[in-house]
Structure formats: C-alpha cells, structure tokens
Simulated scan of single mutants.
Amino acid sequence: MAPYLQTVKSFVDVPITDAGVDTVEFLKAAEGLVGIFDLLGGIAFAAVKKDLTTNIGKVRTRYNAAPEKSATLEQLVANEKAEKLNTASEGLTWLLRGLAFTCKALQTAQANKSEELASAFRKGYEETLKKYHNFLMKGAFSAALSGCPYRADFYHKLAEDPNGVSALSQDQLSEELDKWLAALDVIVTRLQLYYK
C-alpha cells in the first residue's frame, strides 16, 4: 500500500480536451475523492459519501448505456439533453456541488495551516452547498461538520501508509494535495461554466 492520495486516481491525470472532460477518468478520480470521507470519519460524513456515490452511479449508468455519446462529460450532458433526459445531468450537477464543497473545504485548510477541519469544512459549505439546501439539510450538515476529526489526525491518515512501509512528509503531502485540489478546481469550474 501507499499513502492515500497515491492509491487513487488523481484529478491531475483526468484528460481534458477541446471536447471536454474524460468521463471514465473523471469518475475514477471522483470515486477516489469519496474515500477521503472514510478518513474524515465514515459515520459523520455517511450522508455526504452516499450522495456522492449515488451521483457517480447516475453518471456511470448513462455512460454505460451510451458510451459513444458520453466520452466526455460535456458530450454526456448535451446528448442526454437532446434525448430529453436528465438523470445523469442532474446527478452530475449534484456531484459537482459535492466536489466543489470538498475542494473548497480542503483548499481552505491548505491555505491556513492552523485552521481546524471543522472550520474549513464549514467555510466550504457556506461557499458551495448551503444555498441549495433546505432547513433540514442545513441541520444535518451542521451536525456532520461537527464530527470532523482534528486536522493533525486527518493529515496523518492522508500521509501514512497503512502497511507502515512508507509515508509522506507533511511537506510532500501538502504539495501533492495542492496539485490534486487545483486540478479538481479546474474541472469543477469548467463544468459549472458549461452548465451555465
């Protein structure tokens, strides 16, 4: 095994062409992001993880049904719209919102090394998801965010090798995480603009 970010598909490696963001590679990277919620605390973030997984499934189902029309996420959305469908497009909308939330939260944590995760995730929520949630969902998120682990514990889990063979230094982890988040931010921003 290896440290977490080295075991999953990186958003850095998701191809983006003039035609758009590669659907299959994007889904692999999104699945890798979902695993971060296990490191944050599976119980506290179970609803977030389930929502992301469900929406990844909606996009994957559409891709599997029409791979020739879904090579990129942009093609998938355009072709689904032309067929007067919206299941995958709606799933992708919510997936992007969840990815934006996670990205902003971790970017906030990265920008301020003394900020605890609960605070960084609250700020990420305020900037991304809160405006889409009703009163009940806001309460559920508030409770989940209170369950964030301490920053040091989470970063230790991200850096460690579960087998104890190797681990990243905090500087190496920070550099790798910054690249991962920057690439995710580019993809999310691009697709949000496409939707507009």
Rank of each mutant, 00 (worst) to 15 (best):
87 T>W: 10
88 A>L: 08
89 S>Q: 06
89 S>E: 08
89 S>M: 01
90 E>D: 14
90 E>M: 15
91 G>K: 00
91 G>S: 08
91 G>Y: 01
91 G>T: 03
92 L>D: 13
93 T>L: 14
93 T>A: 13
93 T>P: 03
95 L>Q: 03
96 L>N: 13
97 R>K: 05
101 F>L: 06
101 F>T: 03
102 T>G: 06
103 C>Y: 04
104 K>E: 15
104 K>Q: 13
106 L>F: 12
107 Q>H: 07
107 Q>V: 04
107 Q>W: 07
110 Q>V: 12
110 Q>F: 11
110 Q>Y: 11
111 A>V: 01
112 N>Y: 04
113 K>H: 12
113 K>I: 12
114 S>D: 14
116 E>S: 03
117 L>I: 00
118 A>W: 01
120 A>Y: 05
121 F>M: 01
123 K>Q: 15
123 K>Y: 07
124 G>R: 07
125 Y>P: 00
126 E>P: 05
128 T>E: 04
129 L>D: 06
129 L>M: 11
130 K>C: 01
132 Y>C: 02
134 N>D: 15
134 N>Y: 13
135 F>C: 03
135 F>D: 02
136 L>K: 10
136 L>G: 08
136 L>Y: 13
138 K>P: 03
138 K>L: 11
138 K>I: 01
139 G>A: 10
139 G>Q: 05
141 F>Y: 12
142 S>Y: 08
145 L>P: 03
